[in-house]
Simulated assay, not measured.
Amino acid sequence: MEKPSLAIEFCGIRMKTPVVLLSGCVGFGEEYTRITGYSNQEVGAICLKGTTLEARLGNTPHRVIETPGGMINSIGLQNPGARHVIEDIIPRLDLSETRYIANISGSSIDEYGEITKLFDDSPVDAIEINISCPNVKDGGAVFGNDPEVSARVVEACRKATTKPLITKLSPNQTDIADSAQHCIDAGTDAFAVINTLMGMSIDIEKRRPVIGNNQGGLSGPAIKPVALRMVHLVHQVCKDHNIPIIGQGGISSAEDALEFIIAGATAIGVGTALFNDPLICKEINQGIVSYMEKHQINSLSELTGTLSLNQPAPATPACNC
């Protein structure tokens, strides 16, 4: 048997591995690629830091706090604005070492369309639509929690670009599968599932929230079971349309990554785990290859969406009390 291949195709984009470094966790990429020990052979794609049309200063501190099983962040989309990213930052990136995905957010549907048009003229490989940022006072959270509004955002972006569109879905909604279907109908090419969950941490001495914005996005291992379920639900909608998914939410090992792939993810997003171990991607990839060798799997496409559900039990309350 030949050595298993980690290479995947995602919306027509060839990636060396299924590992995608998530937006906000590695800056615009060049900050991360300078780390001693980094190898571009371990990373399939890098999502650029979330970008808005105009520059933003972001939220007041504290912006990040460690929590049991993860962290809460409320950066507030601090960024220099789309034009600066396109004209000054992207030209400094080594576009040959990996794939780059823009991550965009807006305060209106028109703004989403405008910023998409700007990135359409850039060399990025794809555009991720952040309709579900939970830590911005206007925009994202509202769009991401309403399937019809989400679809309108996707539709506006679709009209503005021929590049692949990846819609980042919010877990803070009633029916994520319904939202996915609306976005497919509007023209999305792929999904990132999921964004962070809403969370809070309280300073008991001050009796005030620790995060300056009061609440923020919870990420890390604590959200993995929720993310896995939602990847499975979205995959049920996507599989007949050949719509790929970046599965993300608490991945910090090869075993985590394999669970997401089995649940229906084509690629896997790594974010919070990088803060603990910046070189964890190599460990994840090696673990995936070992699993593939053990089970005589040549390509990850053979594994994607192969989850077999247990025989349904009689209806019981969700809490099983």
Rank of each mutant, 00 (worst) to 15 (best):
M1P: 15
K3W: 13
L6I: 09
I8V: 13
I13R: 08
M15N: 02
K16I: 08
P18G: 09
V20R: 03
L22G: 15
S23P: 03
G24T: 13
C25R: 08
G27K: 04
G29W: 00
E42Q: 15
V43R: 00
A45M: 14
I46L: 06
I46D: 07
C47K: 04
G50S: 07
T52R: 03
T52Q: 05
L53Y: 14
R56T: 06
P61A: 13
H62I: 15
R63N: 08
V64Y: 12
G69I: 02
G70Y: 01
N73V: 03
N73G: 09
S74T: 06
G76C: 04
L77K: 01
N79Y: 06
D88N: 12
I90V: 10
I90K: 07
P91W: 06
R92H: 13
R92F: 11
R92T: 14
L93A: 10
L95I: 00
E97G: 13
T98M: 02
I104G: 05
S108A: 10
S108Y: 11
I109G: 02
I109D: 02
D110H: 14
Y112P: 01
G113C: 12
E114K: 15
I115R: 09
K117V: 11
A126N: 08
E128Q: 09
C133D: 05
N135A: 07
G140P: 05
F143R: 03
G144I: 04
G144S: 03
G144W: 08
D146I: 12
P147E: 10
P147L: 08
A151R: 05
A151Y: 04
R152P: 05
V153G: 04
V153K: 05
A156R: 02
A156S: 10
A156N: 00
A160I: 05
A160E: 06
T162N: 13
K163W: 06
K163I: 07
K163Y: 09
I166H: 01
T167C: 09
N172L: 04
I176A: 11
S179D: 12
S179Q: 14
H182F: 15
C183H: 09
A186C: 07
A186I: 01
T188G: 07
D189R: 07
I194Q: 05
N195D: 11
N195I: 02
T196V: 06
S201Y: 11
R208N: 14
I211K: 07
L218Q: 07
G220T: 09
G220P: 03
G220Y: 00
P221T: 01
P221Y: 00
K224Q: 11
R229I: 11
V234T: 02
V237D: 09
C238E: 04
H241W: 13
H241A: 14
N242G: 07
I243G: 02
P244D: 05
P244S: 04
I245W: 04
I246A: 02
G250H: 05
I251W: 05
E255I: 12
E255Y: 13
A257T: 03
I262K: 10
A263D: 02
I268Y: 00
V270Q: 02
V270P: 10
P278W: 03
L279K: 02
I280D: 00
I280G: 05
C281V: 15
E283D: 11
G287T: 12
V289F: 10
Y291S: 06
H295M: 13
I297K: 06
L303C: 08
T304Y: 10
N310S: 15
P314K: 06
T316G: 13
T316C: 14
P317N: 14
C321W: 11
